[in-house]
């Protein structure tokens, strides 16, 4: 069976005045139907650009320079713009980080939902409105019929994000890319939304890529996790295996950043140093300047080591050591 999504050797670069920013620099990801993938990494590691690349939404001067994105077997890199438009919002939906900014402030919720329905189907207005109302109800918005005629500024941040999710769900897509959709919200709302999205995706067997910089958020949500660093996936695998037994020193460092119940009060381990500037990445393994295990070997590019369902890019993996 063809997987839902196969990304191979994806490179998305931005030419700038100071050089080429390699925002995404060789990413491989596979996702099957109904699967939830957590895409984790620090700020600037290229998570959002990976998402936009899948959607065909990379803004010029940025472009996909290499690699392929296959969605249900169909190649999306270089696909006609109209074909990509038809997939967007219909088969592949995206939810953005800042709910304050994702809805047009001067158009009513009804207008924005109905136009999304009608962008993909010849649904009569009345029918489209009904669909919109049901979608709002599904994400737990009280009195959806009234709220439909409201404007974004009349909704709280959490409610706006629910509206965005409702919009993403309108056409029951096969794949949702959620780019840190809960980061801007407070913790209780965050967990409500998390649980809700998880349930909705399970109900409809929707594949989900949940982008976050917080490993803790995806720990209980994702089936699989991919850890991104400086434009590449440095480690990926089933969530449990990756969290219990990380192989890449960076993954291990990230796990140290997650507050665990039994370690309350203790300071979090932080990964020393900062992510390399995108125009000034070190040769070989990009994590080298921050890595305690680094050696001369690491000055060359580490290739992937595979082990069953998991894989990592490291010369000196943290084999079998359970983090304290």
């Amino acid at each position: 069976m063809t997987p839902l999504l196969e990304i191979e050797g994806l490179k998305t670069h931005f030419p700038t005045a100071n050089g080429v920013v390699k925002a995404v620099d060789g990413v491989d990801v596979t996702l099957s139907k109904g699967e939830i993938l957590g895409l984790v990494g620090e700020s600037g590691s290229g998570k959002s650009i990976t998402g936009f690349s899948i959607m065909g939404l990379v803004e010029p001067p940025g472009e996909i320079v290499e690699g392929s994105v296959r969605f249900k077997g169909e190649e999306l890199v270089g696909a006609p713009r109209e074909r990509l438009r038809m997939l967007r919002g219909d088969r592949i939906a995206m939810i953005f980080q800042d709910p304050m900014m994702t809805l047009n402030p001067v158009l009513s919720i009804a207008t924005q939902m109905i136009e999304t329905v009608q962008a993909h189907r010849n649904t009569p207005r009345r029918q489209a409105r009904k669909q919109a109302r049901e979608a709002l109800a599904r994400v737990g918005i009280p009195s959806p019929d009234e709220r439909l005629d409201g404007y974004p500024h009349e909704f709280s941040g959490g409610m706006r994000q629910r509206v965005a999710i409702a919009i993403a769900l309108l056409h029951e897509p096969d794949l949702i890319i959620a780019d840190e959709p809960t980061t801007a919200l407070d913790v209780t709302i965050q967990s409500q939304i998390l649980a809700q999205v998880q349930k909705l995706c399970a109900d409809t067997e929707t594949g989900l890529i949940w982008i976050t910089h917080d490993l803790g958020v995806v720990a209980g949500l994702a089936h699989r996790i991919a850890v991104m660093y400086a434009g590449r996936i440095v480690e990926h695998g089933p969530a449990d295996a990756l969290l219990d037994d990380p192989r890449h020193p960076y993954t291990q460092g990230l796990i140290g950043c997650v507050p665990a119940a039994n370690r309350r009060g203790e300071p979090l381990d932080r990964i020393p140093g900062t992510a390399p500037a995108p125009l000034n990445r070190p040769e070989g393994c990009a994590f080298r300047p921050r890595c305690t295990r680094a050696s001369r070997t690491c000055e060359t590019e580490p290739h992937q080591t595979r082990d069953g369902l998991r894989g990592w890019h490291c010369f000196h993996p943290v084999a079998g050591e359970v983090p304290a």
């Binding site: 438009r85 997939l87 919002g89 939906a93 995206m94 953005f96 900014m101 999304t116 962008a119």
Partner: peptide, 25 residues
């Protein structure tokens, strides 16, 4: 602005984005 990008992500045509979403602002 993000809402334009989101409008694209929803699959609206460039024409509608420009003439309705951008124009009204």
């Amino acid at each position: 602005l993000d809402f334009v990008r989101f409008a694209r992500a929803r699959g609206l045509t460039e024409r509608r984005i420009l003439l309705v979403h951008v124009m009204k602002n």
